[in-house]
Amino acid sequence: MGFDIDRLRSRVGRRDPDSGADDVRTDGGTEATTGGSRFARLKHSDLVQSLPFWLPPALLMGLFVYGAIGWNLLISLTDWSGLQQPEYTDLSLEMYTQMPADASFVAAFRNTVVLLVVFTVISLLIGLGLAILIDRNIRFENTFRTIYLLPMALSFVVTAIFWSWMYNPSTGTINVILRGVGLDFLAMNWLGDTRTRLAAIIFALTWQFSGYAMVVYLAGLRAIPDSHYEAAKVDGAGSLRMYWRVIIPQLSAATTSAAVVLMVFALKAFDFIYVMFGDNPGRSADILAVMMFRVAFSRSQWAYGAAVATILFLMALSVVAPYLYMQYKRGDL
């Protein structure tokens, strides 16, 4: 191999006083080892030393999360119902194949998707709006933020009770206000009427969770350097235009993570509907989470309930898996 002085010179010239930390330092690389006592090495390896810390929590969590998911899948393949114990001998996909023909499943599935999409989109929009308002150097910023986020700290049980009262057809706040501003024709029995029931639920849930989207967007906005706002201003972009063209495109990461979490909230919206309507909110507002509970715990159709639960799990997975994969690819894990 020839010796290249220029290369040497450039290498020597590259020594700058602050670059000393660039030395190869990798974490936990495996290496081919020869010699030495394998046992001693093993005993002091970081893996072995780390086990007592993460293994017990991992086992507890693994049993309750992954063990239970597997068991649930198994139960869904049986025909278990009623009071006796499940039999795991005769497994079939029967519970799943009967779903398409079950009108209540189809309705619950459709409502779940509608809730998921509409609730998420509206919450994101409101959250973005709140974040933009709050990010404009206002006074009492903390107070405003605290108030917008407050519903998030409340139990579904509590908010369901509040909103039942809000939607009360005669003296509920919603109708009182509608009548007060002369929109009498809009005042209706929001929760009683099957046409408005799902919309009313979505509206209330949006009230509860838009503050979450606000927090995520606010963090996103604060991460954008001031120079971008200034550059947009120098380029003559108006406020609206600036947000549309310059700022919002930079919030895509915030949007993704907020959307994923909101969708998962929506899939979990059981408590809210259960408190408002009990275990049977009717076709118009039934969702899979409620249906699963009704089928399994009220009617003791355990296997069918488990199958509905599996569908719910797969829906969550289809939202979360791509997100986690993206995070992994970006090296954020």
Binding site: V65, F297, L312, A316
Partner: peptide, 14 residues
Amino acid sequence: FLPYQSVLVPLRQF
């Protein structure tokens, strides 16, 4: 991100 419905039946069994 687990929806808790998907572990309820086994949880009760357990």
